Simulated assay, not measured.
Amino acid sequence: MFLTTQQTILLPQIIKVLAEPQPDCALRLRLGNLLTRLLHADQFVSYVWNPAGKRFDDRVAIDMSDANLRNYEAYFQYNDPITHRLRARSKPTLVTEIVPQAELVRTEFFNDFLARDFLYWGMNVHVPIDGESTGDIRIWRSQQKGNFDATDLALLAIIAPAFGAALRRCKDTPTGAPGDAQGADEALALGLTRKEHEISRMVAMGLTDKQIASRLDISFSTVRTHLKHVFYKLSVNNRAQLIRRLR
Rank of each mutant, 00 (worst) to 15 (best):
F76V: 04
F76I: 05
F76R: 02
F76M: 01
Y78I: 15
D80S: 09
D80Y: 06
D80K: 06
P81R: 11
P81V: 10
I82M: 13
I82V: 15
I82P: 06
I82A: 10
T83M: 14
T83P: 04
T83D: 15
H84C: 01
H84V: 02
R85K: 12
R85W: 12
R85Q: 13
L86D: 04
L86M: 11
R87D: 02
A88M: 07
R89P: 02
R89S: 14
R89L: 15
S90R: 14
S90T: 10
S90M: 11
S90I: 07
K91R: 14
K91P: 04
K91E: 10
K91M: 08
T93Q: 04
T93H: 05
T93D: 05
L94I: 11
L94G: 05
L94K: 03
L94R: 03
V95S: 12
V95A: 03
V95E: 07
T96K: 06
T96G: 02
E97D: 15
I98Y: 11
I98Q: 14
I98R: 13
I98N: 10
V99C: 09
P100A: 08
Q101I: 14
Q101R: 09
A102N: 14
E103K: 14
L104Y: 07
L104S: 09
L104N: 03
L104C: 08
V105N: 01
R106C: 05
R106G: 10
T107C: 06
E108I: 11
E108H: 08
F109V: 03
F109A: 04
F109R: 01
F109W: 08
F110N: 08
F110Y: 15
F110P: 04
N111E: 08
N111F: 02
D112A: 14
F113A: 02
L114K: 09
A115H: 03
A115I: 00
A115P: 01
R116F: 08
R116V: 05
D117M: 14
D117C: 15
F118T: 06
L119Q: 07
W121Y: 05
G122A: 13
G122T: 11
N124G: 08
N124C: 04
V125W: 00
V125I: 07
